[in-house]
Write a protein that binds this DNA or RNA. Structure first.
Lengths: 237, 237
DNA sequence: CTAGCTAAGGGTCATCTTGACCCAAAGTCG
DNA sequence: CGACTTTGGGTCAAGATGACCCTTAGCTAG
């Protein structure tokens, strides 16, 4: 959380803010904390805090992640998004923040009090109001996540291992916001080099045919990429 | 340039550093300044400086651009690359820097003394040594520029208008570091929606057949993208 | 004037990828 | 058993790509 004390208006502070996405059920969720102090008391905000002396931005982001979710960085993919620097973005003083995008499999309930998973749609459609410029940061993070699904293999980071092709497809559908053809999706994913590693096991779901189980392969990039059509890109919010 | 005075080791400063690329002849060049002060006196560095009070990062980057090249932002495409935050990246104290990637057509000689266009290859191959972590920043910027050429229409920002398809192709070849098939390249570019806008004029070069002239179209993205093959990606440095 | 050079610009063709389908297989539930 | 759901395999046409070929239109050397 952003500190509680007033700040020298001349001073320049640097913070990190985290957009942690996870897929729960059929919804994309982000980790938000309810603010206990002014400004924006009672509103929601992205988890984050000031960068400490001797700490890199990556280390600060990992520390905040641990404080809010009690997760080591091993299970969550964290990457720098960009810096936000509007002089009046924080009414307490000059704070430049570096946003991080985090992705993880259906994560446990956050440990921090007042922290909770919130559907991203609630923010996009105005049902949940975010403090500061955090709504804009969240939108940028969502767009980055959607683009990353096209070119990289991070979608598998959303899935607890082992997982089925259907589970992986649901990640794409939830993050992108539209349905994919199951058959074409399977062809694409199973033929991609080192994306999926078959375990040989099967999973027997409550309904439907048993599905083969996979583990994440070694590939970091999906070549050729799986591009959203221009039409689909425009259709979703 | 980075300031000349010593700094309080407890304080945290934020700077911007600019990687400005331009194509001159058959080489990709970056704008570098020779350092007149310690540390790294005599070495080259990226242009940059501290962010001032009340200034966004974008504004700081534009101001530095003007100071070094006397160019308004209109002719140069500037975008944020990422932040660099290793605590010991600057021996004078804690400085977090946000790097910007800039692209422009064959730009005039820089106005600032000790500033000069330098072939990027000289840096990559160690003939030119950069101060701080600037060599790493330059490599990251080059990789970003290469990726941007695949998905966006920024390559045209390297070309003074009006330009020919051959000139545009040379941009790709110089930035990517390998040759492209002229015929296939033309097909791809002229069929891309709103990338090239024919002027109807022709240019008569010293040698070879006259070429049709184009202006930048309104499209910002190149769909479908023009992807480097995995082989080509690995081949170039 | 002609041959030779260079680069533009148009075309062919085999291959690959994609999107829209269809359909059988293998489980559960009524 | 039959309805239902999801997996997983297949076809087929349309489009994109890479490797070519060849003509065109300017220049220059002889």
């Amino acid at each position: 959380m952003i500190g509680t004390t007033g700040r020298d208006p001349e001073a320049l502070a640097v913070s990190v803010d985290l957009v942690i996405f996870t897929v729960r059920g059929d919804e994309l969720n982000a980790l938000l904390v309810e603010r206990g102090n002014e400004p924006y008391r009672g509103a929601c905000a992205l988890p984050g805090g000031y960068v400490r002396a001797g700490e890199t931005l990556d280390q600060a982001a990992l520390r905040e992640l641990r404080e809010e979710t009690s997760l080591d960085g091993g299970r969550v993919h964290l990457e720098q998004l960009r810096a936000y620097s509007e002089p009046d973005r924080d009414p307490r003083g000059r704070v430049i923040t570096v946003a991080y995008l985090g992705l993880g499999p259906d994560l446990p309930r956050p440990v921090a009090p007042r922290a909770a998973w919130t559907p991203v749609a609630d923010v996009l459609e105005g049902r949940t109001v975010l403090a500061f410029d955090h709504a804009g940061i969240l939108r940028d993070a969502l767009e980055r996540a959607r683009t990353q699904l096209e070119h990289t293999t991070i979608a598998a980071r959303f899935c607890p291992e082992p997982f089925t092709v259907g589970e992986l497809r649901r990640i794409y559908e939830v993050v992108w916001g539209f349905k994919l053809d199951p058959s074409n999706f399977r062809r694409k994913m199973t033929r991609a080099e080192a994306f999926l590693e078959p375990t040989g096991e099967q999973r027997f779901p409550e309904v439907g045919r048993p599905a083969a189980l996979y583990r994440r392969g070694s590939a970091r990039y999906l070549v050729p990429p799986l591009l959203r059509s221009a039409a689909a890109r425009d259709a979703c919010p």
